[in-house]
Amino acid sequence: MKEVDSIVGNEGNRLMLSMRELSRVYRTDTVETTALDGIFLDVADGEFVAIMGPSGCGKSTLLNVIGMLDSPSSGSYVFNGTEVAGLTESKLADFRKRNIGFIFQSFNLVDELTVRENIELALLYHNVPAAERRARVDEVMDKVGIAHRAKHRPSQLSGGQQQRVAVARALVASPKLILADEPTGNLDTAHGEEVMKMLQALNAEGSTIVMVTHSPSHADYAGRVVNMLDGRILVEHRRAA
């Protein structure tokens, strides 16, 4: 039995992305692993979607495919009106660069660069003039409350502060979609809440967010929760408004 989801995004907004019967199969010499198995998923502009499920259920693969870090084995993936399944790597890189910001569980900041430089990195590949880069980095640092740490290295920050830098970096290029892979996984409760509140605020300002999480309480911040098991979407429910 396949529970097909065909709900149009909330408030009837335009679709940001749409997946139809999308699969991702990993092959090695001896083993074939189906990580995603016939996924149907739509995300509308301005939504905040949480993906939940046990370890190995395919949440992260789904997030990677959404983020175009991985390509589907079959099926269709339309992003912002363009079919992206089957695009070349450099096309995908270009698409990704213009549309998507990432937040990782392990922050993934470059140890050798300062907070400011880490955030700026996201603009370096966008041909943004230096002055504008500076202004935009200042702006997002203010937004996530990390401006006073601009000259510090990641190793000098707490986990929560590091994740705020990562959020700032995801925001600075003004992406259409923010993908967060267990953004609170490496944080204690207080810092986790802090990051979730920040994401919620961003969503309220209009950002579209897809987040993978293990924590039901953090999933509650999202407008819609997608539950996965063994590569399939089991059930979705929308949080009561």
């Binding site: 983020g67 870090l69 450099s90 890189a93 270009d94 990704r96 660069k97 213009r98 990432f102 993934n108 900041l109 470059v110 140890d111 050798e112 990195l121 996201a122 370096l124 590949y125 966008h126 970096r169 290029a173």
Partner: peptide, 15 residues
């Protein structure tokens, strides 16, 4: 890792 980050942020192979 750093290269991965750069790539996610849009760096091309030649970059």
């Amino acid at each position: 890792k750093e290269i991965g980050i750069r790539k996610v942020l849009g760096a091309r192979t030649r970059d």
